[in-house]
Each structure stands twice: as C-alpha cells, then as structure tokens.
Write a protein that binds this DNA or RNA. Sequence first.
DNA 1: TTGTCAATCTAATGATTGTTAGATTGATTA
DNA 2: TAATCAATCTAACAATCATTAGATTGACAA
Lengths: 214, 214
Amino acid sequence: MNKTRQIKDLLYEQVARIGKAASSPKRLELIELLCQGEKTVEMLARAAAISMKLASAHLRELRGANLVETERRGKNIHYRLADKAVADFWVVIRSLAEDRLVELQLALQKIAAAPNDLVPSDRETLMKAARRGDVVVLDVRPVEEYLTTHLPFARSIPMDELRQRLAELPKDRPVVAYCRGPFCLMAKDAVDLLRKEGYSAAHLRDGVAEWGMI
Amino acid sequence: MNKTRQIKDLLYEQVARIGKAASSPKRLELIELLCQGEKTVEMLARAAAISMKLASAHLRELRGANLVETERRGKNIHYRLADKAVADFWVVIRSLAEDRLVELQLALQKIAAAPNDLVPSDRETLMKAARRGDVVVLDVRPVEEYLTTHLPFARSIPMDELRQRLAELPKDRPVVAYCRGPFCLMAKDAVDLLRKEGYSAAHLRDGVAEWGMI
DNA sequence: TTGTCAATCTAATGATTGTTAGATTGATTA
DNA sequence: TAATCAATCTAACAATCATTAGATTGACAA
C-alpha cells in the first residue's frame, strides 16, 4: 500500500512550489521590493536592473505560487504581495541565509556602516527617543514607499533629494536613516553623506518588512 | 557606477542558495525527517522512499547550503540539522504553502481526522490536562525520535507496536496522538486504530518542530 | 589480506529552467 | 481609426537539475 506515499509526495511537492519561487535571486529581489508596497512591472524591472520581459516572466512564477497578485489600472499592471505572510517569509529566509552562509556574513560586514554610539540600537529605546524628538528617524526610500507604510515617527526624504534638502535636518540631534532592509544600500549612502556634511548620523539595518509593518 | 548592483546580486544570490535547497520535494522531506533527530543516509532514504544514491545527492545539496552537518560513526554517516533555525524555516515555509496554495489545503483537509471535542485544542490547556493526567499524550514515532526530543508528558508507543501494546493505554481518558507534523500520517492511523478499539482518541496536528522543541 | 557494507564520487541521461527575441493583447491617446 | 505604451505570450536557446549506473572510498569483520 503506497497510497500514503502518493499523498506525501503531493504534500511536499506543494511546499516545493514555494521553495522554487524562492530559488532565484531576481525573484527574491522582486519580493523584497514588493514588501515596500505595490509596484508596476516597469518599476520592478528598473529597480532590479532587469528587462521588463524577464521581470514579467519572474512575476509570472511568483503568481503561479500565489505569492503575489495583480491589478490592472489603466495601461499598467500593479503587483503586490498576496499576503503579509510573504513578507514574513522573506525576512525568515534572509535571516536563515545570514545565519548559515559565511559568504553572506562577510559581504554584509563589508557594507555595514560604522556604528554610532549616540543612537540606541534596540527598537523600543529608539522609538522612545524618536517620540521625545531626541533623534530624527529618516526614511530615504522613494516617497511612494514611505506613503504605503513607514516606521513610527519617520520623516521622508528620498535618497536622491537628500543633498538638496539637507537643511530640513537638525544638526544638534542624531539622524537615524533606514531604507528597504539589510540588503538596501541607500541608508548607508545617506549616512555617509550626512556625516561628511557634519551631521551625527547612524544606519538602521532593518526596514518595514523586518518591523512587521506590512 | 554599478558596484552597488554587483553587491546586491551577490547578496540575493546567497539567499537563493537556501531557496534552491528548498525547491525540491525530497529535500524538504529530508529536512522534516532531520527535524525529528539525527539519522543515517540509509534511514533517510528508506523513510523518504528513495534510493541511497539519490538521498546522498540531495543531502549533498543541503550540506552545500550549510543546512545540515555530518558526522561519521563507524560505517555510518549521521546527518543532523546544522541549527534549530533550519527547523523553524521548515515550519515557516510549510505554513506559507498551507496559507497560499489551495491544492495543499484541499489535500490536508482530506487527511484530517474527525475532531474530538473532549480534547482541548490549544497548547496551554492541553499541557495542563496532560500534567493532571486528564489526557494521555501519545508519541507514535519511532522510539529513537522520541528519545531525541518529545512533547512534555508524552508517552512513546511507536506506530508499528501500537496494536500489540494497546493494553498500556487507559480507556477512561482521551488519548492524543502526534507524530512528525501535519504531513505525517502516522498519528491519523493511530487515531483510527484506537477509535476502532473503543478508545477515545484525537489527533494532534503539530509535532516537535512546530512546538519549537528542537 | 579479502570481502562486505555504507556512502560518496563521477559521468551520463533526460527534463526543467533562465533568458532573450518576436509577435500579440488591452488600454490609452492623437 | 491608427499609433503608442505596458505587459504578456510563444518559441527557442543554452544552462542547470534530478536521477541513475558504475567505480571508488573508508571502516569494519572474517
């Protein structure tokens, strides 16, 4: 009697559909981008540095695994995560990779900004400081992503406007910049710029997906 | 300047190594088996109903992603999960698949045992009842797996000995059987047998991986 | 030493993928 | 209506993967 075996094969095959969706670097990057909010194919392709055709093919795979869903609005097709659980999955698989793969640890160490001791490192203390106004939490992602969701008390200055809008930031208090997450290098660039201009700045490793704010 | 792009490609590629490891049904089954404790290649191959050669090849992949580790003891090579985080990952990806894939939901509904209202369904209440002795928690996995780790207050009677050892179980209290997790059908078989023999029996969907007891 | 067992390594196969180009669809604009 | 744009579909190629068979290693037992 191998009926049990047939059922088991079927069950694991289904889970493997999710694994397959997560087995391509570009698909993972698309998932992370969609964690920041709804996007069109064109936006996704540009952000992931691939052709629209290839982005479309990868998104098709993600849709086949029911991880994303689409909605047509005029000429554009907007993609979004099918569920918050997908964002959580991205955080889990990324964390596991960080835990287990030395190559990833090394790569991340290289891009880590120098720490700033003036800024609290745990979430609760940071939020208390932000509430009191002792630190400025700065979201350097594109403004649409900020509008979809952002960390509490965060102020939006997209990275490519930061140089012109420096005056909006105070020099007497630390600025804590964040972006899309540990793989996004914008916050680090922001910190480098701010420090060069004489600001007290620090880099927040996590983004909205890690904070569970999808 | 596409140095940023190069770094990003590298980062996502590393995470994709984990996804790739999780993209094969048999590899996922091997991970779940290893969640129950250390096993030799032969044991894994038998349990997953594949040849030793194929099992070895899949285990090689898992080792390449640093998800499992090996130790030689005499003639045998023993495999185990490299970290508790791998077991947690298995639970997360399986849950996501259950959330998103209708096919999986349907397959699981078919194999779900009829509920037994006499048995509490949440963990805390169940454990209180088990502590008082109001229910018997029964582990029907092979005894080695029970010895590695088991739910609190659980008693071990492996599935293939259950018929002969029925007398060890009380008829005046409900028996709650569990096995390797939602994809393992042994607990359901145990419940079917127990009910036919006049016992009050229920099926616990989760196993030690779901309870975080690795 | 010789033989046996567990497991891996190597090489080969067929089947899936990632990726790209070209044709096509659906919605908008002129 | 024709032209344009966003995105998909189809078909094709090369690259990768699953699976199997045959040879090999490492440990043990006779």
